[in-house]
Simulated assay, not measured.
Amino acid sequence: MSEHYPVALIGPGAIGTTIAAALHEVGRTPLVCGRTAHQQLELRFDRGRIVVPGPVLTDPAEIKQPVGLVFVAVKATQIKATAAWLAKLCDEKTVVCVLQNGVEQKAQFADYVAGATVLPSVVWFPAQREPDASVWLRAKPRLTLPDTPEAGLVLKTLQGTRCEVDLSADFISVAWRKLLQNAVAGLMVLAGRRAGMFSRPDITALALAYLRECLAVARAEGARLSDDVPQEIIDGFHRAPADLGTSILADRQAGQPLEWDIRNGVVQRYGRNQGIPTPLSDLIVPLLAAASDGPG
């Protein structure tokens, strides 16, 4: 760990490895914590690779003092597993930057951070875990953070790295726009297909109808998003490589629990609170929940 940037990272999966590699590349290697004692982390991209030396720490008892900044890059289904790490890594001066899907990060982590400040983020890069445990980064990494004083610490920490950081005064709109993208990607789980499926006219029509339903809920929650957003999101899937996957599809293929609630269930839940009909969510959410949790 750098003495100037006391940084830790929990969860060296696809997103976590990308952040760890970006920091290591400029000499700010974070303390990496996880379930498996990997001897190294490897990030691959078009023009090369970055290897972050290990081992990954697996026992919170090895943490001797809090740090200034903690990146948390675990799935929503794994939040409780971070409790022991956060208890050791955090105090009231710590900033916990959550690299996770959804719009509820502050509420989800409030009980685990020992008085630290929870800083939500929006992650804008496709990184996927490969069978050899390396991570393949398929685009330039970028984070969007709310424009708050705490975000300045993350901006300073990642300054000069390959990961860009944007600050947004209207973070709620940015977060909901990304949620819409994540929500419609859930259709890939139900079809068992990657991004190429959106080239089908029938899937495009279904996706647009679902995105418009999600947009109505997002606006009711304060997001300022135009009528063009659903088509913009679908256009992005049309431009994507046909074999581009998504983390929720990878979890389904691996038989892991799915982040169905924070990516899709949230639209149904908030829609009900706002009195907005969500007929497509009422079909999609139970199917995703059953694919994740069973029974059967």
Rank of each mutant, 00 (worst) to 15 (best):
V154H: 01
G102Y: 02
I50T: 10
Y270S: 05
E221N: 12
I284P: 02
I276G: 06
G115N: 13
L211W: 02
E259T: 10
N273F: 09
H4A: 14
A133E: 15
V98G: 03
W260D: 03
G271Q: 00
R212C: 08
D91W: 05
V52K: 01
T278N: 08
G294V: 07
V165F: 05
V7Q: 01
V189K: 00
S168Q: 07
A81W: 05
T117G: 08
M188Q: 13
Q181T: 11
E221C: 13
S199R: 14
R269I: 07
R224L: 13
K80I: 12
V123S: 01
N101E: 01
L41K: 00
P60N: 01
Q268L: 14
L43M: 13
R44P: 05
P241K: 12
L215Y: 03
Q159L: 11
A254Y: 09
Q78T: 10
V266W: 00
A185M: 07
V74A: 03
I234S: 07
Q128G: 13
A151F: 06
N182W: 04
I233P: 06
V217K: 00
A240R: 04
V113Y: 03
K140S: 14
A84V: 13
D228A: 15
L99M: 15
L206H: 04
F71R: 00
L225V: 07
G265I: 05
L249Q: 04
I284F: 06
P30C: 12
K88R: 15
R129H: 14
L180S: 01
A73E: 02
E259L: 10
I248D: 01
S173E: 02
A223N: 03
D251R: 02
L99Q: 09
V51P: 09
E104R: 13
T204C: 12
R47I: 05
L288M: 06
G11N: 11
T18C: 14
I284K: 01
L155H: 10
V98L: 06
R269M: 11
R162L: 14
R224G: 10
P230Y: 06
E213D: 08
T58V: 15
D293S: 14
P55Q: 09
Q128M: 14
H24Q: 08
I284V: 14
K75Q: 10
F125M: 11
A218F: 04
A290F: 12
L119Q: 12
G196T: 03
T17S: 08
L283C: 07
T82P: 06
L31W: 11
A84W: 10
W136V: 08
R224N: 15
Q105M: 11
S247A: 14
V70K: 00
G296L: 10
D293E: 15
F109K: 02
G245S: 15
V96H: 00
V70E: 01
Q253D: 13
G34P: 08
K75Y: 08
L208A: 05
C33Y: 00
T36I: 14
Q105C: 09
I248A: 04
D132R: 12
T29L: 05
T77N: 06
A191C: 11
A139E: 15
A22S: 13
R138D: 06
K93I: 07
L179Y: 03
G54W: 00
